[in-house]
Design a binder for these strands. Structure first.
Lengths: 204, 204
DNA sequence: GGTGGACTTGAATGAACGCTCAATATAGAG
DNA sequence: CTCTATATTGAGCGTTCATTCAAGTCCACC
């Protein structure tokens, strides 16, 4: 038919995600994107529509990859609580990885975006709600299999866990040493494991 | 001598703080500031030097007010743990107040600012470290008066508390209802109170 | 080996950005 | 009242912003 594209859409999106995650929406200019994607403005607009559109797709990709990692961790542990604790401990090693940012991109977006970027902001909120639901679901599962005391509320626990993760990653964004982040994550993981029904029984 | 200023520096700074806290550094333009401060660019630059300079002063003011409120809460409670729990519960009502943002401005800045605004970023980090130190100090005090088991580490507890607050306020930034935030804060407060030495004894 | 059509290019757009400075206004000192 | 010192003004600086589009490029197909 016609000329074939020299760019892989997924790959371009991955590079854009890297940049947006690192610098945030406002601080990432089209110049930056042109360089990172090795595309001229016309191509970027033909492919993604607008800077906002590209950002929203990047957000979705970020959340999709994050959820996949979450599920991978959960599937590696039969026990829901153990899976959640393992996820927390894995987050403790976030300083040792080479990432665009140690903070969660959804939280960065939630805090950065205002009324003028409402659509992207709402998307970030929705994606965060989706992650929260995943946590809630695991706690509900833990309750079902008797790991969790029946008096505990999975919704509250899920929110609390998400809040702890947000805090952990915001803390990691500071220029602190890796050991401190590991210690904090370990502490959170232990609190989580302390919810196990047989242990809770002792203090109720 | 000469013409007297028609603007109160503190008042101008307060208005700038309001704007920066609400919209963040990048999304706040000089046009916005001119309107909010009712000052023309020349006056703003004569008074504060630059947009960065104004932002840094706003950050400092924010932290100073935040620390003052912290200390006010602590002084209202003889027991360190009770003071910390009260501060958490007060944060639970953050949705009911009219604030520029429900998220912490220091965290917003930490997540938003990059290499190009390094000075302001470092300032935000330092101010966060200062708040963390305040929490650590209260936990150390709790340990000293025997409220806290001697095996617990005040530094870790302080960091954990700060992380929880960061998470709580990031959660509150989402479009959730006030009751959910109250419940989350209450849950965190109860975890904190469960650290009381006499209760810890039961599970150790 | 044209030719059609999708992809790419990059100069150009107007708007918005942070910021400057010569001009102006104003109040106290003499 | 005049002079002087400082505060304020706002037009305008050069730059950068996101975005557009006419022109050019290249491949599949006839």
């Amino acid at each position: 038919m016609a000329r074939v594209s020299i760019h892989n859409r997924q790959d371009s999106l991955e590079r854009a995600l890297h940049l947006f995650w690192q610098k945030g929406f406002h601080a990432t200019s089209l110049k930056d994107l042109e360089k990172a994607l090795d595309m001229r403005p016309g191509s970027i607009y033909a492919t993604f529509g607008s800077k906002d559109g590209l950002f929203q797709e990047a957000l979705e990709r970020y959340a999709r990859l994050g959820l996949a990692e979450l599920d991978r961790t959960f599937q590696a542990y039969e026990s829901p609580l153990a899976g959640l604790a393992a996820y927390l401990r894995a987050l403790g090693g976030i300083c040792d990885k080479e990432l665009p940012s140690r903070a969660c991109m959804l939280v960065k977006s939630l805090l950065e975006l205002g009324e003028r970027e409402r659509i992207a902001r709402d998307k970030a909120e929705a994606l965060l709600a989706g992650m929260e639901a995943r946590f809630v679901d695991r706690f509900a599962e833990a309750k079902k299999v008797g790991e969790l005391d029946s008096r505990l509320d999975p919704v509250l626990l899920g929110r609390r866990l998400q809040a702890e993760i947000m805090g952990l990653r915001a803390f990691a964004q500071r220029d602190v040493d890796s050991a401190a982040v590991h210690a904090l994550a370990e502490d959170m993981a232990q609190s989580l494991e302390a919810l196990r029904a047989d242990e809770v029984a002792e203090i109720v």
